[in-house]
């Protein structure tokens, strides 16, 4: 009897907190996204009206509005492309490093792991700021390029989409390396030797043995980079220019500048449905499935 009470306390304290401060806020976003906008404070009408009897006052106007305007769809597509490119480069840089960390001896492995994690622990905002210094017109990269004679005058490296990609790849790289390492660390190195003994060359060993075995790590790392990058606001704001608009920026402006709360909520809720929901459902199904298969 006592155990039951105790279990309930453990399960329901965080349950209560998360329903109140996480689930209800998400529900409120949905509610405001289907509300009729109007001038005033708050800038939307209630969804339940009690004037002449009870009436439900909802609309899908806000969704129609954002999905029919290229300004919004284009920005979302820009963000998806940005996330795709950044994830690709994180994988390109992260995979070899993760592979070599996993195949090193214990001592070197621990040192390298700490070295990869340290930048991740230091401030995100300041690491982005560092690139602002490096890419300045009179910044260190331009100085090097000028001295090497690669360019005769300083290049405009900052405030464009390439600077944004650079900043994202840099800040998100540890998020790619760690899960990759986690999976690569599990597999048997003898497999590589075996495939070499069986006559596969280095190229074939990589594509036929190493790559297929690291797919779960690649998926985990890519998701950890891809999803937050689609919603990224700070990096484009600090390093980007006006050449590209991204989802995060238009969501921010729709709310703070245009004061269109229903529009901003519709944007946010669409983001949840398109990006987050598929992954969460997959995760829940996967954890239930693996639990059933182990017990």
């Amino acid at each position: 009897m006592k155990n039951k009470l105790f279990e309930k306390y453990f399960v329901f304290s965080p349950y209560f907190w998360l329903v109140l401060f996480f689930f209800i806020p998400l529900a409120i976003i949905f509610k405001i996204s289907i509300s009729v906008s109007e001038w005033g404070m708050p800038p939307y009408q209630d969804i339940f009206l009690f004037e002449d009897g009870f009436k439900i006052n909802t609309t899908f106007e806000n969704y129609v509005y954002i999905f029919s305007d290229y300004y919004y769809i284009g920005s979302f597509v820009n963000s998806l492309i940005l996330a795709l490119i950044s994830t690709f480069f994180c994988l390109l840089i992260g995979f070899p490093l993760a592979f070599y960390i996993a195949t090193s001896n214990t001592r070197l492995r621990n040192i390298l792991l700490v070295l990869v994690v340290i930048p991740f622990w230091s401030s995100f905002l300041l690491r982005v700021y560092a690139w602002k210094i490096i890419l300045q017109n009179n910044g260190i990269l331009n100085v090097i390029l000028l001295n090497l004679g690669i360019t005769s005058e300083p290049l405009q490296l900052l405030y464009n989409q390439y600077a944004v990609i650079m900043g994202i790849v840099y800040t998100y790289l540890p998020l790619m390396i760690l899960p990759l390492y986690g999976y690569l660390n599990k597999f048997d190195l003898n497999l590589i030797e075996a495939s070499k003994d069986l006559g596969l060359n280095r190229f074939k060993t990589f594509f036929k043995v190493i790559l297929p075995l690291s797919v779960p790590g690649i998926v985990a790392g890519s998701l950890l980079v891809f999803i937050p990058v689609v919603g990224e606001f700070i990096i484009p704001e600090m390093l980007g220019g006006s050449d590209r608009l991204y989802y995060g920026k238009i969501l921010w402006e729709e709310f703070f500048v245009n004061r269109n709360w229903p529009g901003a909520s519709a944007l946010a809720f669409s983001g949840i449905i398109i990006l987050v929901l598929p992954i969460v459902i997959f995760q829940i199904l996967y954890s239930r499935w693996s639990q059933k298969n182990e017990i």
């Binding site: 919603g231 606001f233 995060g248 909520s265």
Partner: peptide, 21 residues
């Protein structure tokens, strides 16, 4: 769902939902 979604939810959406809440 409640305990794992905050891990993958973009901060911007979380921030907006908290403010409106």
């Amino acid at each position: 769902f409640l305990s794992s979604t905050p891990l993958v939810l973009p901060e911007l959406i979380l921030g907006l939902s908290m403010l409106l809440f």
